[in-house]
Design a protein around this nucleic acid. Sequence first.
DNA 1: TTGAGGTATTCCGATATGGGCATATGATGG
DNA 2: CCATCATATGCCCATATCGGAATACCTCAA
Lengths: 113, 113
Amino acid sequence: MARAATTSDAFNAIAEPQRRDILALLRAGERPVTDLARELGMSQPGASKHLRVLREVGLVRVRGAGKQRLYGLDARGLRPVHEWLGGFERFWNESFDRLDTYVQDLKQARQED
Amino acid sequence: MARAATTSDAFNAIAEPQRRDILALLRAGERPVTDLARELGMSQPGASKHLRVLREVGLVRVRGAGKQRLYGLDARGLRPVHEWLGGFERFWNESFDRLDTYVQDLKQARQED
DNA sequence: TTGAGGTATTCCGATATGGGCATATGATGG
DNA sequence: CCATCATATGCCCATATCGGAATACCTCAA
């Protein structure tokens, strides 16, 4: 089996940096494909492909506007990610502490050599 | 070019559901590989591989304990993800609104057919 | 030392990726 | 209808993936 499809969920979709960039740009408002491509330094087909992925996981919506197609952010798709992360927030500081004791253990072990 | 390596960053590491499950389990405390494998219904080599990835992006720490190796959570690695997401929280409700108007546009367009 | 439990690594196959390029499809204005 | 701009798709490549199976590795105990 290969890796899960990028189109499977938001977690996979935002694993790709360029797609994160696209989403970030779209916070400023709707944009046509070519705009995004130019602004992010990618090819037009490249942008279209990434947008397709984002569309398929529901992070982005399209709207025809004359010849153009305006892509807009639909941030609700990020909620599952945020919720999953929420389960870990309380461990951030704790992890710091644990690491401290861990590092001290290492030092001690080194002295015992 | 293929997809970015899973070991490249936390975003890629948590794109895999089983790895998310491992991290979630580790919130309850350190565990040896076999434990995780059994509890999550995966093979021992499978668990080891996922743990390697998590180790390489710094989401997990190991500690030898006799024959066993205890894996523990290091949730700090999730911070970048959380921070990136933070930039979108304020768009969640707004997106709702936008979607409403979008749906209404669709309805209207359909009536005009 | 040898054996045994616990874990990591290697090799394999099937599959999905992202990028470049060419080209198909769409919509608009003459 | 045609030419044109805007976008989407298809195809190909090199590469990375995850999973399974076999096996190498490590640590302890006898």
